[in-house]
Measured scan of single mutants.
Amino acid sequence: NDEAKKEAEKLWKNNKSEDEIKERLERAGISPDEAEQWLQELR
């Protein structure tokens, strides 16, 4: 999970869309709710 979150953070810094980041997190096995929460922390 931490690995996926690091990846999400990297994508965020590269200005990827939130949808793309969420999709990537969900593919890594993170629930949509958790993915949404993680994005809010990044904002």
Rank of each mutant, 00 (worst) to 15 (best):
S31K: 07
K22H: 02
K5G: 01
K22E: 03
L25H: 00
E9T: 08
L42Y: 04
W12K: 02
L11Q: 04
P32R: 10
E20P: 00
D33Q: 13
N1H: 14
R27C: 11
N14M: 13
P32Y: 05
S31F: 02
G29H: 00
E36Y: 06
E18G: 04
W12G: 02
K13T: 05
N14V: 05
N14D: 14
A8H: 02
A8G: 04
R27L: 14
I30C: 00
K22M: 12
I30H: 03
L42M: 09
D2T: 11
A35F: 06
W12R: 00
R43F: 08
D19L: 12
D19K: 13
E34Y: 03
Q40F: 08
R43P: 02
E41F: 09
R24Q: 14
L42T: 02
D19I: 09
N15L: 06
W38M: 09
E9F: 13
K6L: 10
L25S: 00
K10F: 13
N15M: 05
E18S: 08
E36L: 08
N15P: 02
K6V: 07
N14Q: 14
I21Q: 02
L39F: 05
E36N: 08
N14C: 15
E23S: 09
E18C: 06
D19S: 13
N14I: 07
E18M: 10
N14K: 06
R24T: 13
S31Q: 07
E3A: 13
R24D: 09
Q37S: 10
A4C: 15
A8N: 02
N15V: 03
A35W: 09
E7D: 08
S31L: 08
E36T: 07
E26G: 04
E36F: 05
W38H: 02
S31P: 12
L42A: 01
W38F: 13
E18P: 08
D33E: 14
D2R: 10
A35N: 00
E20C: 15
D2Q: 13
R27V: 11
P32W: 10
L42W: 12
I30R: 00
Q37G: 04
E41H: 11
S31R: 04
L39V: 05
P32N: 08
G29P: 03
K6M: 09
Q37W: 04
S17I: 04
R27S: 14
E9H: 12
N1E: 11
I30V: 12
W38C: 04
G29R: 00
N15F: 08
R24F: 15
K16G: 12
E9R: 11
N1S: 12
E9I: 12
K22S: 02
I21G: 00
E34F: 04
L39P: 00
K10V: 12
D33P: 03
R43E: 03
R43V: 06
E26W: 09
E9S: 09
K6I: 08
N1D: 09
D33R: 07
E18F: 11
K22N: 02
Q37A: 13
K22T: 01
E7I: 12
A4G: 05
D19F: 11
A4Y: 07
L11G: 05
A4S: 04
K10L: 13
E26A: 12
S17H: 05
G29C: 06
L42P: 00
G29F: 00
N15I: 02
E34I: 14
G29W: 00
S31T: 11
Q40K: 10
D19N: 08
R27K: 14
W12T: 02
G29T: 01
K16H: 15
R43N: 05
L11H: 04
W12P: 02
D19P: 04
Q37P: 01
D2Y: 13
E36D: 09
L39K: 00
W12A: 03
W12D: 01
N14Y: 07
G29S: 00
L25A: 03
S31H: 09
G29V: 00
N1T: 13
Q40P: 01
E41W: 13
R43A: 05
I30P: 00
W38N: 00
W12Q: 01
D19E: 13
L42R: 05
D19H: 08
L25P: 04
E34M: 14
K10M: 14
N15Q: 07
A8T: 04
A8P: 00
E9M: 13
E3V: 09
K10E: 14
D2L: 14
E23W: 06
E34T: 13
P32T: 08
P32G: 09
E34P: 02
D19G: 06
E3P: 05
A28W: 15
E7P: 01
L25F: 02
E20H: 03
R27E: 14
A35S: 05
E34Q: 13
K16I: 15
L42K: 05
E18Q: 05
L11P: 02
E34D: 08
K6G: 04
A28F: 15
S31W: 03
E9D: 03
K10Y: 13
P32E: 08
D33A: 12
R24Y: 15
L25W: 03
L39Q: 01
E36C: 10
L11W: 12
G29I: 00
E26L: 14
Q37C: 12
R43T: 05
A35H: 02
K22L: 12
L11A: 06
E20N: 02
E3S: 09
P32K: 13
A35T: 06
K16A: 15
A8S: 03
N1K: 15
L42E: 03
I21H: 01
Q40D: 11
R27H: 13
A8F: 07
W38D: 00
Q40M: 11
S17A: 05
N1V: 14
E36H: 05
L42N: 02
L11K: 02
L39N: 00
W12H: 04
N14T: 06
R24W: 15
E9A: 13
N14W: 08
N15S: 07
A8W: 04
N15C: 14
P32M: 07
W38V: 06
R24M: 15
W38G: 01
W38S: 01
Q37V: 08
D2W: 14
E20T: 03
K5N: 00
S31V: 02
R27I: 14
A8M: 11
R24K: 12
K13W: 13
I30F: 11
R24H: 15
E41Y: 11
D2F: 12
S31M: 05
E26I: 14
E41I: 09
E41A: 12
E9G: 06
K10R: 13
K16T: 13
L25D: 04
S17N: 09
L25N: 02
A8R: 02
L25M: 06
Q40Y: 07
E26P: 00
E41N: 09
L11M: 15
K10A: 10
E3D: 12
D2G: 10
S31Y: 03
Q37H: 07
E36R: 05
A8Y: 04
E36Q: 09
A35D: 00
L11E: 04
L39W: 02
L39H: 00
E18R: 06
R24E: 13
A28D: 10
A28E: 11
A28P: 04
K10H: 11
R43Y: 05
E3G: 09
R43C: 12
E7F: 12
R24G: 09
E7W: 14
D2A: 12
D33K: 10
E3F: 11
L42V: 02
D33Y: 10
Q40A: 13
L25Q: 00
K6Y: 07
A35G: 01
N15T: 03
E23G: 05
K13N: 11
E9Q: 11
D33V: 12
L39G: 00
R43L: 07
K13M: 12
E23K: 09
E7A: 06
E18W: 15
D2V: 12
E34S: 03
S17F: 03
K5P: 01
Q40H: 11
D19Y: 07
E26R: 12
W38I: 15
K10N: 11
K16D: 04
E36W: 08
A35Y: 10
Q40R: 11
A4M: 14
I30T: 02
K10G: 06
E23M: 07
K22V: 03
R24S: 14
E7L: 15
S17R: 05
W12Y: 12
E3W: 15
E20I: 07
P32F: 06
D33C: 11
Q37Y: 06
E26F: 14
E9L: 14
K10T: 11
W38R: 00
E34G: 02
W12F: 10
K13P: 02
E34N: 03
N15A: 07
N14G: 07
E9P: 00
E23D: 10
W38T: 02
W12E: 03
L25C: 00
N15D: 06
E41D: 09
K13Q: 10
E34W: 04
D33M: 11
N14A: 14
G29N: 02
E3K: 10
Q40S: 11
E34C: 14
N14P: 01
W12M: 03
K13S: 09
K13V: 07
I21S: 00
W38E: 01
E9Y: 14
Q37T: 08
K22C: 05
K5Y: 15
S31I: 01
K6H: 05
S17C: 01
N14R: 04
A4L: 15
E3L: 10
I21M: 01
D19W: 12
L39A: 01
D2S: 11
